[in-house]
Design a protein around this nucleic acid. Structure first.
Length: 412
DNA sequence: TCTGGGGTCCTAGGACCC
DNA sequence: TCTGGGGTCCTAGGACCC
């Protein structure tokens, strides 16, 4: 072990979405509950331990989950509620922790380095866990060790509803017998490759000379070598800036209808531009993603002038779509991503000649903030959840601009 | 009843510049 | 006189995480 001096806590809410559903409806306690997997092409996003006993796991297609667990209770999900409880837990941790990182809706790291000689950190963590359970009613597990990787692996061992500290100096003992797939960032593919090489446990992996690992896996090889020894030095970061934003939709049935696809692309790009402006950012790269029948996925990206304009970005997205789409080929998903994001503050001078347009967008956003994001979209009959055949993109854009202009004039 | 949606990071080839 | 080498940006695809 390189750095024995740190104390890192990892906390993870157990089957978080299911736990929130159980707070809302306690009759779900003790039953096989599955969130997601509803609808023609849904997948499981969270499932209770009762459902896991039947082989159900997250990311599993709904059909398969139904087959394995026909008596399961399938729920569509309530993301507003999940965000709310995630926020409550975050606040509890923020109130108690000196330095913490929110790694996802249901996962947190806390840097407890310097808080004692370890036993104190364990006691402190136990107290925090008890507080979260008492104040929210949500089960949560934790792991405590010398770095983020080991703390996370300890949590995985502690689940459900448990806690585990890896004693100092016992890290290698903890790691060695585990399958390589237990290492965070060793996914299905990498595990399969390692298994084919005869490497099944972390102990096996540790026997491989670093040169061999680098030859085969390049950078990943170095990382494997380090991880098999419990080395991981990534800091607990309390803030990370978003590097890209995206939105995508899978259709209930595949389609070859170009007008329909353009409508969907229009709505998605408009929505994402709105998010971009809300973040006070400009984008410099736009990517259109098309997933065809058979799960064959292509993407086409283009570097563009820094922009936050729906009109400009929709034009670019439409261009990319036309360059990319193979006419007549059935499409199951369409998506859009903005990357190369920068803060708009210093870049605004680029838009001197577009002030009118910008004020128009801010008017649109005001309406949205007031009445809800979907209001304008629904007003045009392009509800994404129920996408209908639609009119030409240019016509829709014009209509939207006119609508907003008249809304604004009415106000004045 | 095959495969969601929002992200991050890495690789590899080509363009382009000096 | 047949074709260096490094750096950087762009693009497409894929693995991985929750």
């Amino acid at each position: 072990m390189t750095d024995n001096s740190r104390s890192i806590l990892h906390m993870d809410l157990d089957s978080f979405f299911v736990s929130v559903e159980r707070l809302k409806d306690p009759s779900l306690n003790g039953k096989p509950v599955i969130v997601g997997g509803v609808g023609a092409r849904g997948v499981v996003s969270s499932c209770s331990y009762e459902a896991r006993q039947f082989g159900v796991h997250s990311a599993m297609p709904g059909g398969q989950a139904h087959k394995l667990c026909p008596h399961g209770i399938f729920l569509p999900g309530d993301h507003a509620a999940y965000s709310k409880y995630s926020r409550i837990v975050t606040e509890i941790i923020a109130d108690s922790a000196p330095l913490f990182e929110k790694a996802s809706v249901d996962e947190f790291y806390v840097d407890l380095t310097g808080m004692d000689k370890y036993f104190g950190a364990y006691k402190w963590s136990t107290g925090l866990r008890e507080k979260i359970i008492k104040e929210t009613g949500l089960p949560i597990s934790f792991g405590l060790s010398i770095n983020k990787m080991l703390a996370k692996m300890a949590t995985n061992d502690a689940k459900p509803n448990g806690q585990l500290m890896i004693e100092r100096g016992k890290e290698q003992e903890f790691l060695d017998p585990k399958p390589v797939g237990k290492i965070p960032f060793v996914g299905e593919k990498l595990e399969e490759t390692l298994n084919k090489m005869g490497i099944r446990t972390i102990y096996d992996l540790r026997q491989m000379p670093i040169e061999n690992l680098i030859n085969i896996f390049s950078k990943t090889g170095t990382s494997l070598w380090n991880r098999s020894r419990g080395h991981s030095d990534s800091p607990v970061a309390n803030y990370r800036e978003e590097k890209s934003i995206s939105v995508e939709r899978t259709f209930d049935t595949d389609t070859t209808d170009v007008e329909f696809l353009l409508s969907a692309l229009f709505v998605l790009t408009e929505k994402l531009s709105y998010d971009l402006r809300k973040l006070n950012r400009l984008t410099s790269c736009i990517t259109v993603k098309i997933r065809y029948e058979g799960f064959i996925t292509t993407s086409r990206q283009h570097t563009v002038d820094y922009s936050l304009s729906s009109k400009y970005l929709i034009e670019k997205a439409t261009e990319l779509f036309h360059q990319s789409y193979e006419k007549g080929r059935p499409v199951r998903l369409i998506g859009i991503r903005f990357s190369g994001l920068v803060y708009s503050g210093t870049q605004y001078t680029l838009f001197d000649d577009k002030e009118e347009e910008n004020s128009l967008y801010s008017a649109i956003d005001t309406v949205k903030n007031k009445y809800g994001t979907n209001k304008l979209i629904l007003a045009r009959g392009i509800d994404l959840g129920n996408v209908k055949r639609n009119r030409d993109v240019q016509a829709m854009m014009k209509e939207q601009v006119n609508r907003e202009r008249s809304n604004r004039d009415d106000k004045e």
